[in-house]
C-alpha cells in the first residue's frame, strides 16, 4: 500500500514539476483520493502482482518485443502480397497458470502480437483468432503460455 502511495506521489511530482504549496496540496489530495477509490474497488484484496514480479517481467517483455517484431514483419508481408494469402482460423488454447493475472497477461500478449487475436477468455481457455496458418501454429506450440506460467508460478 505504501508503495502505491509513493508511486502516485512520484508520478504527480514528475508530471507537474511545480513545487508551489497549492499544487503540492492538490497532489496530496488526489493521491489519497485515488488510494481510497482503489481500496474500495478491492485492489488490495488481490495480490499486488505488478510490483512483485517486476524483474522477471522485463525479461518477458524483451522476448515479447522480439516476437512482436517477427510477427509484424510476417503480417506486413501478408498485407503487401497482392494475392492476400490469409487463412483465418479460430483455435482454443488452455492457459497452464490458474491465476487470473497470468491469464490476462497471456491474453493481452496474444492480442499484442500481430496475427493473433484473443476473442474470449473463459475459465482459463482462450479462444484465439489467427490470421494465417503460420501464426496459429506458432501459438499452438505453447511457448508463450510456458513463459507466462514461468513468470508467476502457483
Amino acid at each position: 500500500m505504501i508503495i502505491l502511495l509513493l508511486l502516485l506521489a512520484a508520478a504527480w511530482l514528475l508530471w507537474s514539476g511545480l513545487f508551489k504549496p497549492l499544487l503540492l496540496g492538490l497532489g496530496v489530495l488526489s493521491c489519497f483520493l485515488t488510494f481510497t477509490v482503489v481500496r474500495r474497488m478491492g485492489y488490495f484484496d488481490n495480490e499486488l502482482f505488478a510490483l512483485r514480479l517486476s524483474w522477471s517481467l522485463f525479461g518477458y517483455w524483451a522476448w515479447l518485443a522480439r516476437e512482436v517484431l517477427l510477427s509484424s514483419i510476417e503480417v506486413a508481408r501478408v498485407v503487401l502480397d497482392p494475392r492476400l494469402p490469409i487463412s483465418p482460423s479460430v483455435i482454443e488454447i488452455e492457459s497452464t497458470s490458474k491465476r487470473a493475472f497470468a491469464q490476462v497477461l497471456l491474453g493481452n500478449s496474444i492480442t499484442l502480437t500481430p496475427g493473433t487475436l484473443t476473442l474470449d477468455l473463459h475459465k482459463g481457455v482462450l479462444r484465439v483468432h489467427a490470421l494465417t496458418e503460420n501464426s496459429a501454429r506458432g501459438l499452438m506450440s505453447g511457448e508463450m503460455d510456458r513463459r507466462v506460467a514461468a513468470l508467476n508460478p502457483d
Binding site: 517484431l69 509484424s72 483465418p88 492480442t111 499484442l112 502480437t113 500481430p114 487475436l117 483468432h129 490470421l131
Partner: peptide, 16 residues
C-alpha cells in the same frame, strides 16, 4: 475482407 482480419492489420499499428 472482414472485421477480425482487419483487426489483425490494425494491431500492427497498435503494437509495433
Amino acid at each position: 475482407p472482414d472485421l477480425y482480419t482487419r483487426m489483425h492489420a490494425a494491431s500492427i499499428t497498435d503494437s509495433i
